[in-house]
């Protein structure tokens, strides 16, 4: 569903933000992308959304080349950005309505919106409340509600649990699990090793634009993710080759 083939991005000033990324997320799978700031996680997501063009390589959503047919590809993906602000003067429902319509949903009624907002755990009183009065956690929930109402098969989440208190983060994880159960393919970039271990089907670690490691959930039973992460970050270990992984 979400696939990157040799995705590379080099900026005009020469900085290599992404170096030949290969990645695949299948339906019903959560893939967590870990890495330091500037490692290339957000760049990856931006490439899938056609916010920037790749230098080489192909980003695919549902088999559609995002660079060739972005409008078609965007029908199949839902996006939650880091630091969701939304339109402060509008209510939660109005924000939801706006993005739902843009996503192509017509003829949705108030009840439909309320239902989705309930699903993500927003309190009833917040439905018609102006978003500028929301806490970060509530905004995040509204953000995921926007993703859910689009009901697209692929989800791109950029640091969704950053800045959330533990309770809200836990709620959020539950929602993700539900979405996985419904068969969504979820690509999530994060710093939160704890949550990643909890929810990821697969984990990739990015360093300076390269994916240096990838592990499945089973493999992580035997390896300490924190140790791995820090080792890679401190620069001791180089990128793995495919053969090493297979063995």
């Amino acid at each position: 569903m979400i696939e990157a083939i040799n995705l590379t991005k080099r900026y005009e000033d020469g900085v290599l933000a992404l170096d030949s990324l290969n990645l695949k997320v299948n339906p019903g799978e959560i893939y967590c992308l870990l890495g330091a700031n500037g490692a290339g996680k957000t760049t990856t997501i931006n490439l899938f959304l056609n916010f920037i063009p790749p230098t080489s390589g192909t980003p695919l959503i549902n088999g559609i080349d995002v660079t060739r047919d972005p409008l078609e590809a965007k029908k199949y993906v839902a996006y939650l950005s880091e630091n969701v602000m939304l339109y402060g003067n509008f209510t939660a429902r109005q924000n939801l309505d706006f993005f739902a319509k843009l996503g192509g949903k017509k003829n949705l009624k108030k009840e439909d919106y309320y239902m989705v907002m309930r699903e993500v755990g927003l309190p009833e009183r917040a439905f018609e409340q102006r978003v500028k009065e929301f806490s970060k956690g509530m905004r995040q929930k509204l953000g995921i509600a926007i993703c859910m109402i689009k009901d697209a098969p692929a989800l791109l989440l950029d640091e969704p649990t950053a800045g959330l208190d533990p309770a809200s983060a836990a709620e959020f994880i539950e929602t993700l699990k539900e979405l996985r159960r419904r068969g969504k393919a979820i690509l999530m970039s994060t710093h939160d090793i704890f949550r990643a271990k909890e929810i990821a089907d697969r984990v990739g670690i990015m360093k300076e634009g390269r994916k240096v490691m990838e592990r499945t959930r089973e493999e992580l039973e035997y390896e300490n993710l924190e140790r791995l992460y820090l080792d890679y970050m401190r620069g001791g270990l180089g990128p793995e080759s495919e053969e090493r992984r297979a063995s």
Partner: peptide, 9 residues
């Protein structure tokens, strides 16, 4: 970003 992640030109 939110808006442009939707399928519109």
């Amino acid at each position: 970003r939110m808006t442009l992640s939707q399928p519109l030109p």
